Simulated scan of single mutants.
Amino acid sequence: MHQFLSALSYKSVAFLMLSGLAYAEHARAEPHKTLLNLMPVNNEMEMKRAVCMNSGASSKLLIAKMDVVKNTKGVQCPTGIAAIRYREDISDPGHVLVNIDPPKGNNKGLDCDGKADLGLTYIGLNCLAVDLESTSHRKN
């Protein structure tokens, strides 16, 4: 009797698995419709282009050389100076925080934030339009 129940269990499991596969076939993931706005930043000129460019994008991902963000305090945009802040994260030793704030009064500019290990050559900065940020935070 035990062997019969074991065989029945295996058949039930196999049936459920096949049923799940048939069901999963109908639930396909749709491709993402928006394009990723990815920009490399290897020098100060590319930093200016990435931060000041008014493409109407609501978000952007910058892959920036750590030297560039560390040594650039700000970039002059047509609407003013975008501040770049680079500092060690006192709450997480061995890491650096980078923030890029759009020029004051520019409510369409991008606010960028990133965190990385101190020894890395590049940092990823997530940028979001100021008017889409969920909360306000202190800017220097």
Rank of each mutant, 00 (worst) to 15 (best):
M1Q: 08
M1R: 10
F4G: 01
L5D: 10
S6H: 12
S6F: 14
S6I: 15
A7N: 08
L8C: 07
S9T: 04
S9M: 04
K11F: 10
V13M: 13
F15W: 09
F15I: 11
M17E: 05
M17N: 07
M17T: 08
S19C: 08
S19N: 11
L21M: 15
L21A: 14
L21N: 12
L21T: 12
A22D: 03
Y23A: 14
A24C: 05
E25D: 13
E25L: 13
H26C: 11
H26R: 14
H26K: 12
H26V: 13
E30L: 15
P31G: 09
H32E: 06
K33Q: 15
K33S: 14
T34R: 09
L36N: 06
N37V: 15
L38E: 08
L38A: 11
L38G: 01
M39Q: 15
P40D: 09
V41S: 05
N42E: 07
N42P: 01
N42Q: 09
N43F: 12
N43Q: 13
E44C: 00
E44K: 12
M45C: 01
E46G: 05
R49L: 07
A50L: 11
V51G: 00
V51H: 03
C52Q: 02
M53F: 12
S55R: 05
A57W: 09
S58R: 14
S59C: 12
K60R: 15
L62E: 03
L62Q: 02
M66Y: 07
M66W: 09
M66I: 13
M66G: 08
V68A: 02
V68R: 02
K70E: 01
N71D: 13
N71T: 13
K73Y: 03
V75A: 02
Q76E: 12
T79D: 14
T79P: 01
T79Q: 14
I81S: 02
A82D: 04
A82C: 05
A83T: 05
I84Q: 01
R85D: 00
Y86F: 13
Y86H: 12
E88D: 06
E88V: 03
D89G: 04
I90P: 14
S91T: 11
S91D: 06
S91E: 06
P93A: 07
L97R: 10
V98Y: 03
V98A: 05
V98H: 00
I100V: 09
D101A: 14
D101S: 13
P103H: 06
K104N: 11
N106G: 07
N107D: 12
K108R: 11
K108W: 05
G109W: 03
L110W: 07
D111E: 09
D111N: 03
D113G: 02
A116F: 04
A116E: 10
A116V: 14
D117R: 05
D117M: 05
G119D: 11
G119A: 08
T121E: 12
T121M: 10
T121W: 06
I123F: 04
L125R: 04
L125W: 01
C127P: 02
L128C: 08
L128E: 13
A129C: 05
A129E: 11
V130H: 08
D131K: 11
E133F: 06
S134G: 15
S134M: 15
H137V: 14
R138E: 15
K139T: 13
N140C: 10
N140Q: 13
